[in-house]
């Protein structure tokens, strides 16, 4: 019995230690620091971006550099804020690492296909939307499923990707369907191919890309939600967020935004990039 209490005592001590280790102790110190001023001083903005998502942010295997719509836009915004010589540094993030990296100050902002939702806005501050995606579904050619409402039957299985907002939306549009979350787009698509689900859901741009690679699969029913992507910054960084919003307006006005949009999305069949011009 004595041993048991010894054990419990040690256990609680270590638990407490772990709690202090994981609590957001550092965020208070960081939130006092003005990110905008610090960035101006160092002449760099550090962005958390995707490195495994086609069109938005994908590592180029040859050069080892991340490329995509979000990367180009981040570069443009950096130049707008810091001037011509401003440097943009890119840190690859995943849905598991983006929040702790932002909180710990490893990155200044997250620009990684992150949809603005009220739930998320409790934890971070978003800029206004820089890209309006819409959610759609991808099915095998000839599938009886024609739109998202066809999935609203028990026994239907929808595949999605962990960390995306789209799985939550499916719960609203097809509450009877079962949702399986896989860890990335390629795994989710492979699961669709092997019949683990009836449809794959995520943002339309990504789905169109998949259907180009695999002609046996089509996007059906068009997009049924609006997924505004926002840049996330730490709470309390109002100056930085306002400056980002201003910079976004500037690149939209001078045509840089449209140029970048055209560069990445003009070759995606099914997606009319002209409708998205700003």
């Amino acid at each position: 019995m004595k041993k048991f209490w010894c054990f419990m005592g040690l256990f609680s001590v270590l638990t407490l230690m772990l709690i202090t280790l994981t609590s957001c102790g550092s965020s208070t110190a960081l939130s006092k620091r003005d990110v905008l001023q610090a960035d101006k001083k160092s002449n760099t903005i550090t962005w958390g971006v995707k490195a495994d998502t086609k069109l938005f942010g994908l590592m180029n295997v040859k050069t080892g550099k991340v490329e995509g719509f979000e990367i180009d836009l981040a570069k443009a915004l950096t130049k707008e804020i810091l001037g011509k010589n401003g440097k943009a540094v890119f840190v690859p993030v995943t849905s598991q690492t983006r929040m702790p990296l932002l909180r710990n100050g490893n990155i200044d902002a997250i620009m990684a296909t992150m949809t603005i939702t009220p739930q998320r806005a409790k934890q971070v501050d978003f800029t206004r939307s820089y890209f309006d995606a819409g959610q759609a579904i991808l099915v095998k050619k000839g599938s009886p499923i024609k739109n998202v409402y066809d999935l609203n039957k028990s026994g239907k299985v929808v595949l999605g990707v962990t960390g995306s907002n789209s799985v939550e939306n499916i719960g609203k549009f097809a509450p009877k369907a079962r949702v399986l979350q896989l860890s990335d787009y390629a795994q989710a698509f492979t699961a669709l191919k092997s019949g683990q689900g009836d449809a794959l859901t995520t943002d339309n741009g990504i789905l169109y890309g998949m259907s180009v690679e695999n002609p046996g699969y089509v996007v059906v029913g068009g997009s049924f939600t609006k997924e505004p992507y926002g840049i996330a910054v730490n709470k309390g960084q109002k100056n930085f967020r306002n400056r980002l919003n201003k910079a976004l307006t500037a690149v939209e006005k001078d045509g840089t935004y449209n140029k970048i949009l055209k560069k990445w999305f003009s070759n995606v069949p099914g997606l009319n990039y002209k409708e998205m011009m700003r």
Binding site: T22, Q96, T97, M99, T162
Partner: peptide
Amino acid sequence: GNMIANNTLQTMPSYF
């Protein structure tokens, strides 16, 4: 855990 971390965006506490 992954789902909760994404729902709440409180990554560290969720995994803890």
